[in-house]
Design a protein around this nucleic acid. Sequence first.
DNA 1: CAGGATCCAGCGCGATACTG
DNA 2: CAGTATCGCGCTGGATCCTG
Lengths: 126, 126
Amino acid sequence: MKSDGPCKDCSRINEVLSRVGDRWSVLIVISLGNYGTLRFNELKRNLGISQRMLSLTLRELERDGMVNREYHPTIPPKVEYSLTPLGESIRGPLREIGDWALNNLPAIDEARARYDAQSGLDRESA
Amino acid sequence: MKSDGPCKDCSRINEVLSRVGDRWSVLIVISLGNYGTLRFNELKRNLGISQRMLSLTLRELERDGMVNREYHPTIPPKVEYSLTPLGESIRGPLREIGDWALNNLPAIDEARARYDAQSGLDRESA
DNA sequence: CAGGATCCAGCGCGATACTG
DNA sequence: CAGTATCGCGCTGGATCCTG
């Protein structure tokens, strides 16, 4: 159940991936990276995320030191989110994946089409 | 719901992340990358994955053209999995993330400790 | 406007049992 | 050994309502 066996790093990598791989975390980081600073509802609208998930994810990201939360006690309240240096630092690796994705999605789609076409008929015959 | 709003690439990036971000997909790719070729139960043991998830994930990865499946109709049967060129090509970006993780996990843990310490007491005062 | 609280549906995923 | 089929629970995450 937790026996990542011989692959010790796996657990740590896993840890990070459960954050980095989380669609909302990634999208938020990307958005904040592009826009610099965004307010709660701006993020909400931009990403089409429910405010529950936005709230939860932002708190997690803040907790992890990835985003800054600036609270302005005005009326109405105004909260601005932006990336911390740590948050900035992950943009590179993230972009790598993004680029790979954009470059290889066609290949993937193609592979899928091929796979689906013969839909597992003669797997062993050949 | 589906309104990724202005962020058109987001949906595609999301697509890839739901695969790349999937813990099992990643671990399988990493394992196959390290060992070259592995059999079903070898992967199962190495990763501590249930055979259900392993089966499902492998099929997805095969469908996406990321892994090769070589079936040997011997008795007992023997199936060998390995990375395709496409699968190989994602190892780089993946390693980027992994490296980032290993380098920054301490910073994250630290940030968390700090966050948890003041556990959201004076959020606006200070 | 920013977000907490609640409720609830869906499916992710593990455990188990069976097959070729 | 390499899977498939089934069941069941827990967590994810959206919808909704409410507050400061």
